[in-house]
Amino acid sequence: MAKGRIVVDESLCKGCELCTTVCPKDLIAMDKGRFTPKGYHPAELVDPEEACTGCAICALICPEAAISIYRWVPAAKAVGVAS
C-alpha cells in the first residue's frame, strides 16, 4: 500500500512541469489527454506500484500551491493540519 498520495487542484495547475522534475520516484506526469479550465495539461500522480511516500517535495516547488499531500500515519500521530 502506498504511504502517501498527492492531489493536484486542476483549477490552479498551470502545467509548468516543475513538480515532474523533482519527484524522487518520478511519479508525476503531465496528462496530455486533458485540459484544465485554464487550458493547460494538468500534472497528475501516476503511481501504479503505489510508491508515493507523501514526501511533499512536489508541493514545495509548486508555484501555484496546487498540490495537497496525504500520508498514511498511525492513528495516534494523525493531526489535522488543514481542513
Binding site: G4, V73, G80, A82
Partner: peptide, 19 residues
Amino acid sequence: EKLVESLIYAKPESLYPVG
C-alpha cells in the same frame, strides 16, 4: 498498527484559494 490518512500539506491559510 491502524493507519489513517492524514492531510499533511495544503495551500496555506494566508493565501486565498484562488489562482
